[in-house]
């Protein structure tokens, strides 16, 4: 583990948790469904960053790029489907408020 990569890793270890915290906080506390998806998107970006970092540190950038490409494709589909569901929820409740999708209790 060269001194230079250790320093870089040290840097990422500081910033990555921050992005994760921001993402989770947004997903949990927001009331607007679309903003929840934004939070999800932030988390995905953080993970993409981790993969890229892993690839760089171990010199396997080609491999990590392949993984990132697949990841992005899949995330796009997930977000698209999620957006579709949110759209339909909006058609029903005529509002994007998250509080009206907690009716299923017990």
């Amino acid at each position: 583990m060269t001194q230079e990569t250790a320093q870089l890793l040290r840097l990422y270890i500081v910033f990555l948790p921050l992005i994760f915290v921001a993402g989770f906080y947004c997903v949990i506390t927001t009331r607007n469904l679309i903003r929840t998806l934004l939070g999800l998107e932030i988390l995905t970006k953080a993970v993409t960053l981790m993969l890229a970092l892993a690839g760089y540190l171990t010199g396997r950038t080609a491999m990590s790029q392949a993984l990132i490409i697949t990841l992005i494709v899949i995330e796009v589909v997930v977000i698209a489907v999620a957006a579709g569901v949110v759209l339909n929820i909006f058609r029903h409740n005529n509002s994007l408020d998250a509080r009206n999708i907690r009716s299923l209790k017990g």
Partner: peptide, 13 residues
Amino acid sequence: NREALEGSFKYIM
């Protein structure tokens, strides 16, 4: 319908 969408969204999250 309303429940299906709610169930699906929770599963997605």
